[in-house]
Design a protein around this nucleic acid. Structure first.
Lengths: 201, 201
DNA sequence: TGTACATCAGTGAACGCGCGTTCACTGATGTAC
DNA sequence: TGTACATCAGTGAACGCGCGTTCACTGATGTAC
């Protein structure tokens, strides 16, 4: 248990390390169980060090949410680019939620954020354009209600999955299960969504 | 601030009062902010009294969840009886979630329950029959995936509403907003769901 | 009608705990000249 | 190349707090006879 490396006084990139460790902690025990002191312990620094980087606990969680929104926008954008299939974007949303439970939990808990943080606002806006912004010139549904329906469905499915409220017998792969369920969305356009050629750029 | 009534030694129905007050507290501040001690303070009893009725904090929250599932099953059942319209059942789900935020929050957090509590299991099963149980001889969708799609949609919409993540410009009445969104569900049956006559018993 | 006694409901003191934040500090780094 | 100094990163002690749970207790209620 004795430290092999006599860690230097300066960490190098403590901010990065703290965010990563927070994500691990929250993923294991939920955000309610994450404390700055335990976080500092795991990172091997004094318990006052995190405050130095984030101001307070809310600041740390704001950083987690910001990273989450950035990652989500990246994933959804990549999938849309690669497949041009709106259903695949929905599946990617669920895959993200299940694969990044800590980010996902913190992202949708605005009570845990510094609401006015510019980085957060920017990252959230980038994600929002995939979820309901009708001006984004994006995926499928032409009406905002259709977009909200799609978002609600995948969001609800992800929440029910993560919280363990879905019944037994569902596909073990969340993306597969999500596709099976999202099939029951009626596209916002008359009959079926326009689909770009696979792999099209 | 002096107590007008010199409260008798026995409360009368402290268990009932504690559950009600817990629902108020959780509705105001979220479940994370509810403590047994503050709860006892509000109910005007000693801080050890709640333990007497619920064993521990988890026991209290289990009681809240149980009540929530019972209420939900009652509401959904009543709406189905009255309207025979599956869309209305979805709207009722969202109305319940928004109108009973404390119950709703606790219900879908199994980590806060005594999982083996018989009352809880019974109440949850009663609700579940409305949500995805294909053997319940109930509402609309004939396939389980269709039922899960509907549940996911209304559940997600309610979560996004409650957590304040929906964009501006949505109808102020959650049931109205929910109907507008749930329209985009394709029924599990070929074309449209069979609808019983209004008011039919 | 009265009395003994078991059971139930609520009390209040005490336990041990981990937390977020503040603060004066020290060690390390980098920049200006 | 060397030195002074500002800035940054992390320390460790201390603050005050509220919490859940345990425990021996007391007051009230109801039941058996």
């Amino acid at each position: 248990v004795s430290p092999p490396k006599p860690r230097p006084y300066h960490h190098g990139d403590l901010r990065r390390a703290l965010v990563d460790e927070a994500v691990v902690m929250i993923g294991q025990e939920g955000v309610a169980a994450m404390s700055l002191r335990e976080l500092a312990r795991r990172a091997g620094v004094s318990h006052a060090a995190p405050t130095h980087h984030f101001g307070d606990k809310t600041g740390l969680l704001t950083a987690v949410a910001t990273e989450g929104y950035t990652l989500l926008a990246g994933e959804l954008g990549a999938v849309w680019e690669a497949t041009g299939d709106f259903l695949e974007v929905g599946a990617a949303y669920v895959r993200f939620a299940v694969g990044h439970q800590a980010h996902f939990e913190v992202m949708f808990r605005p009570d845990l954020h510094h609401a006015d943080d510019p980085d957060l606002r920017h990252a959230r806006a980038a994600s929002a354009s995939f979820l309901y912004d009708p001006t984004s010139g994006l995926p499928a549904p032409e009406s905002r209600d259709a977009a909200l329906a799609a978002w609600s469905l995948v969001h609800g499915f992800a929440q029910l999955w993560i919280s363990g409220n879905l019944p037994d017998g569902i596909d073990r792969d969340p993306a597969v299960a999500a596709r099976a369920v999202a099939r029951f969305l009626r596209p916002g356009r008359p009959r079926r969504a326009v689909t770009r050629r696979r792999g099209a750029r």
